[in-house]
Amino acid sequence: MTSPDVHSLVGAYALDAVDDLERAAFERHLAGCETCRAEVAELRETSARLADSTWSVPPPRLRAEVMAEIGRTRQAPPPAEPDASPDRRSTPAWQRYSIAAAAAVVLAAGTGASVYAIQEQKLRDSSAVVAAAQLREARTQAILSAGDLVVRTAPMIGGGRVTVASSATLRASVVTIRSDRTLAANQALQMWTIRGTGSPVSPAVMAPGEESGVAVLDGVPGNDVFAVSLEPAGGSPTPSSTIMAKVQLT
């Protein structure tokens, strides 16, 4: 196995997707290659971040339990009120209590239905988020295990590192950003791709004050440079501040 072949195992090794022979060869190489050690650490951090999403999803039996509880709950009659009006006296007590109980049951049923509707919406929202996270994780693993994976890194001003793991065949990259610089709540790290002498294009902006993050970006391998700048919260149409890091993709 030649040296370039060993370097190409970075992504597969980080995902534990190598056989025993490849693992032994790569670990011998890893002992003397600081660049590969850094790349493996970055890629493992990326995988851990993408897999670390736990969502609390309402159980499917929620509706049945709510409706069953409504059926089991006995509605207490309203307290007697002193009322000497003719209409009040003309209505038998049992009828007034029956009407009140029926109203209470209707109210309880309406409340239960409302609770179920809210929980059902939360379930749909949570399911959509989980599905998106699973899709992103699968996409990430596909990129990191691609046969043509190329991993490039660059330091950030003030400390930290940007790692871009790209697959030209998938036309996508997994980007990890870690800044050691403390950001203010009104500042954000913004990503840029630059092709030749063209204008920078921003594929993503990190949340205000967020100093590290992972993104799966399409189209990055077709560019010459990947850069990160410090911008106002929400981002800028063009880089307006100092470029914090620049990764040469070609």
Rank of each mutant, 00 (worst) to 15 (best):
V214F: 04
R152S: 08
D5M: 14
W55K: 03
W192P: 05
V106I: 09
R63W: 11
H29N: 03
G160E: 05
L9C: 02
R28E: 15
P79S: 06
A51I: 05
A233L: 02
A17F: 04
R136A: 09
G196D: 09
G112M: 04
L21N: 12
I194S: 10
A17I: 06
A38P: 03
T35L: 12
P155F: 09
Y97I: 10
V205I: 13
A172H: 02
G160F: 02
A128W: 09
V247N: 02
A131I: 05
G196L: 04
L50E: 13
I194F: 10
A25I: 07
R72K: 11
Q134K: 13
T91H: 12
V220Q: 01
T169S: 12
F226W: 14
R195S: 11
I243W: 04
E45Y: 12
T35G: 08
S53W: 15
S114V: 10
A168L: 08
L217S: 01
R152G: 04
Q248M: 11
V130W: 03
L135M: 13
A101G: 12
S145F: 00
A128N: 06
S126N: 15
M206T: 09
V164P: 00
A113K: 11
P60G: 01
V201H: 12
A168C: 00
A172W: 02
R181D: 05
Q248C: 01
L144A: 00
P78Q: 14
S229Y: 10
E39T: 00
L50P: 01
S212T: 12
V225C: 08
A101M: 15
H29K: 09
V228M: 05
T169P: 00
L30Q: 05
A93W: 09
M156H: 04
P4L: 08
V225F: 15
R178Y: 01
L249N: 10
A184V: 04
S127F: 01
G110M: 12
T54L: 14
V66S: 01
T238D: 09
R152F: 06
D52K: 09
S179Y: 04
T35W: 08
V130P: 01
P239Q: 00
F226E: 07
T153D: 07
T238S: 10
V10N: 02
R139W: 07
D5P: 05
S240C: 04
A113L: 12
S212A: 13
